[in-house]
Amino acid sequence: MEAGVISRGGGSGIPKRSPRARLADPAFRWALTAMALGLVALIVYFFILLIVKAEPTLSHVGVLSFAFSNNWDFGGEIFKAWPLLVGTLVTSALALLIGVPIAIATALFISELCPRRMRIPLTVLVDLTAAVPSVVFGLWGFFFLAPKLQGTAQWIADRLSFIPIIGGGHAAGPSYFVAGLVLAIMILPIVSAISREVIATVPLDHKEAALALGATRWEMIRMAVLPYSRAGIAGASMLGLGRAIGEAIAVSYVIGGNATLIHHIVEQGDSLAATIARSFNEANANQRGALIACGLLLFVLTLVVNFVARYFVARSTRALRAPPAAEPVASGAV
């Protein structure tokens, strides 16, 4: 039957399909669209659900007061989550400050400096770090890292006591600092893997040109590799930041659980996600509402981070595409 169709349609040169075969394409398209829309609907549903469940708390405390006032007393049911929001931002920022340079260095080493034979084993090893469950990082941080670092942290804090927040204070075992350090290790694999991919896209011509001009390895990396991949690395860091913001379990172990506004980074604090993870089990109705409101705040924070990440990625593609695209147009005009 199909052969008949083909022979009859032979005049036009394009074989005609049976109605059933023609159906497959739109069906496939609709199925994919439905799935994609389903995902969007799920996100919207979560957002609405969070708002509905958080509404009693938010209307009682006030949205701005909930997010930006400083008084979190979970047991006493006073829910003003500014200390938690700041804690989340501080630990995430620490994670980026410590983690991103190491991640970029790792990526540069693997793609530019290390012997070819070691490249794949090292890549696998770094990527494997991503598979370690976060609770393992948390336990390791609490039982091993925190007590070992307490003395060092106190020493550094004393030396830097002239800087507010960064220095000074009485070092506790668990602290913002330890949480930031553990998060830095946790974001390493994702930031490093994406940076590596971005660095791999640097055209060989650029690198060879730099070397041909007499640049050393380091100058080549600084002049050819880093500028080309800068925006992509920024995007990778944003993804790492997203992970750091949302991490609950590991942070809940190593941050100490003291919901007061940060005084010194070597002291204990708390974060939004850690509070949710730690308190949900034993929460009453009011407390649960407050925790869901924390979840909403985290959701909004993550959305903001996502938009920032998109902005960076978009800017990077524009910055990279623009100069080569401009040249042909210019030459065409001439």
Binding site: G246, A277, L298
Partner: peptide, 12 residues
Amino acid sequence: MKSRQWLSLIAC
């Protein structure tokens, strides 16, 4: 990156 937040949100 998002899975963690999603998990906690789903749990919430």
